[in-house]
């Protein structure tokens, strides 16, 4: 097997105890350093699928390999050192009386050396900008900071892969900017990132690979360029490419998929500026 593969799903199926078949025959490989976004309607199986990546759910058929190890007989507490998972609602994760306690809890439960835990907590607190809140009660923090703290808790177990379930839901523009730039930082440090989101501009701006889920299956997969070019196919899956991509398409950029506003500005200036520039004159 390729050394770079971190998570491999081989023909996995999953049914809930009530009989709902949430995942049907999905095969997927995630490599080290990937930045993957899972998109799709509610109920399409995104969350169910990513919960297989750290053993929270075990496939009813097929197998999931995390760093080459099959998850079936592995405990989540063991796998959480390899794959960190940040839940959509940070309030489901937090229960300690101070930010420092909260971050230290996981490593302590796993029996890490107290001195080492201390050092680790200090590093994380500085890294995530939670320094001023070290003694604050987690529930006194703003939603954005609680989410940072939830990330800190996952980070404290030193996983190589991070899964984020809808990290920007319920946040204002700056809140979601801030959490996404935190995720980008983790990616730049070589971590593998998996996010679930409904926000297509975020996918276009941050992800390197997109997986579109529909009815428990992978409906589309590729780079954001490849996926967002297929506007009609997306529409049939009740999804929309970012507005800037659709606008660019209307304006006639067939040969190139535009994903961000700066790209659009570049394209517009290159295409139309020469035409409106008076000969020899300058635009002021």
């Amino acid at each position: 097997m390729d050394n770079n593969v971190v998570i491999q799903c081989e023909n996995i199926c999953f049914s809930y105890p009530n009989g709902v078949q949430a995942i049907q025959n999905v095969s997927l490989t995630i490599s080290q350093g990937d930045y993957i976004a899972f998109v799709g309607q509610n109920g399409s199986g995104k969350t169910t699928l990513v919960k297989h990546f750290n053993g929270l759910l075990k496939p009813t058929r097929g197998k999931v390999l995390v760093f080459g190890e099959e998850t079936t007989n592995k405990k989540v507490s063991y796998l959480s050192r390899k794959v960190g998972y940040v839940f959509q609602n940070p309030d489901d994760m937090l229960f300690c009386t101070s930010v420092i306690e909260e971050i230290a809890y996981g490593p302590r439960m796993l029996g890490m050396d107290p001195e080492e835990v201390k050092k680790k907590v200090e590093n994380i607190i500085i890294e995530l900008g939670l320094d001023e809140y070290r003694e604050t009660h987690p529930f006194a923090l703003s939603l954005g900071d609680r989410q940072r703290l939830a990330v800190a808790c996952a980070l404290s177990l030193d996983p190589q892969v991070f899964v984020f379930d809808e990290p920007t839901t319920g946040q204002d523009y700056f809140g979601s900017k801030s959490i996404m730039s935190l995720i980008d930082q983790l990616h730049q440090k070589g971590k593998t990132i998996v996010i679930i989101t409904h926000d297509m501009p975020i996918v276009a701006e941050h992800a390197k690979r997109v997986v579109v889920m529909n009815k428990g299956q992978v409906a589309l997969e590729g780079t954001p360029e490849e996926v967002f070019t297929q506007i009609d196919k997306l529409q049939s899956l009740s999804l929309k490419a970012p507005q800037v991509t659709m606008l660019a398409r209307e304006l006639g950029t067939q040969e190139k998929t535009i994903l961000h506003i700066p790209e659009m500005v570049d394209w517009l200036t290159q295409t139309y500026l020469p035409a409106i520039k008076p000969a020899g004159g300058e635009i002021s």
Binding site: N54, V76, S77, G84, F87, D92, G106, M109, L157
Partner: peptide, 15 residues
């Protein structure tokens, strides 16, 4: 909700 919280805590290394 209890089962979601339990999953969230498992992810933090608690068994």
């Amino acid at each position: 909700r209890a089962s979601i919280i339990q999953q969230a805590q498992l992810c933090r290394g608690i068994s």
